[in-house]
């Protein structure tokens, strides 16, 4: 195991975030805070409680998850797409480092950034709404697993993408809609029965439901199923990445 190489990639990626602090940390925290102000404080006070939780507090887990999902996908994809785009990927590919080590370096850094942002958003939320965390360990598990899984998913997009349009098309057209329709802002029990069934095909529903359970002990779907769903998606991403490196897909000629 070339741990020095893993550490080099990890540190270089974290340093990149450090150089773009405004864009990579401040901007997402501010935009998420706006949701709290608008939906939590301004509109939220006129919406009745959901499952015994005030609306402002109800949306917090969903917003944190939304932030983690989008940031993980974007950090994970740009981390590997950028070296591909500017050609510096030659150095990674010619180094004595395995595919697995490359993934740990890039995905580990992307997931770390997401976790930091998630923590910041949670801290910000605590200013606006009363928060309680009933199952802190489960909360942590969901946070870590989701960050890793979606950073890995982003990494796959980064390898697959041949241009900037492709790089943004999956986050914009798939991840964002799935997140908004995944129960960030509502309980899926408010939907008509048909749409409740359709919603169950959205993987994000399981993430948000499980994560919300770790806060308030209420969930749309069973928390065990939530955890299994995240784990399943994580394994699927791992298999795809393994295949990509094995075949050199869009990395080697």
């Amino acid at each position: 195991m070339n741990m020095r190489a893993v550490a080099s990639i990890y540190h270089a990626e974290m340093a990149r975030t450090g150089r773009t602090l405004m864009q990579s940390v401040l901007a997402p925290v501010i935009s998420t805070s706006l949701y709290f102000v608008v939906f939590g404080a301004a509109i939220g006070s006129r919406i009745e409680e959901i499952d015994g939780v005030g609306y402002g507090a109800f949306i917090v887990p969903g917003l944190v998850m939304m932030m983690i999902l989008m940031q993980s996908v974007s950090n994970g994809s740009i981390g590997i797409y950028f070296p591909k785009f500017n050609g510096t990927v030659y150095e990674i590919l010619s180094a004595p480092i395995s595919a697995f080590e490359i993934v740990i370096g890039y995905v580990g850094a992307a997931a770390t950034k997401s976790l930091i942002l998630g923590a910041l958003v949670l801290a910000t939320a605590a200013f606006f709404v009363p928060l309680e965390v009933q199952h802190p360990l489960a909360m942590l598990a969901f946070l870590v697993l989701t960050s890793l899984t979606f950073s890995l998913f982003g990494f796959i997009i980064g390898i697959w993408a041949d241009n900037f349009e492709q790089l943004s098309v999956v986050p914009m057209l798939i991840v964002t809609p799935l997140t908004f329709l995944g129960g960030s802002f509502y309980s899926i029990s408010v939907l008509p029965p048909f749409w409740q069934t359709v919603t169950l095909f959205n993987p994000v529903v399981y993430l948000i439901s499980g994560f919300r359970w770790s806060f308030y002990g209420v969930s749309d779907v069973d928390v065990g199923i939530s955890l299994l769903a995240v784990l399943g998606f994580f394994l699927l991403c791992l298999i795809i990445v393994w295949w990509m490196f094995r075949t050199g897909y869009r990395l080697k000629t």
């Binding site: 190489a5 340093a15 070296p83 050609g87 150095e91 180094a95």
Partner: peptide, 20 residues
């Protein structure tokens, strides 16, 4: 092919680390 936004020192040090 080079990352334009890092310093010379950190770029060269990165390469050394990458090779273990």
């Amino acid at each position: 092919s080079i990352d334009m936004f890092t310093t010379v020192w950190s770029s060269v040090s990165f390469s050394r680390g990458l090779f273990g």
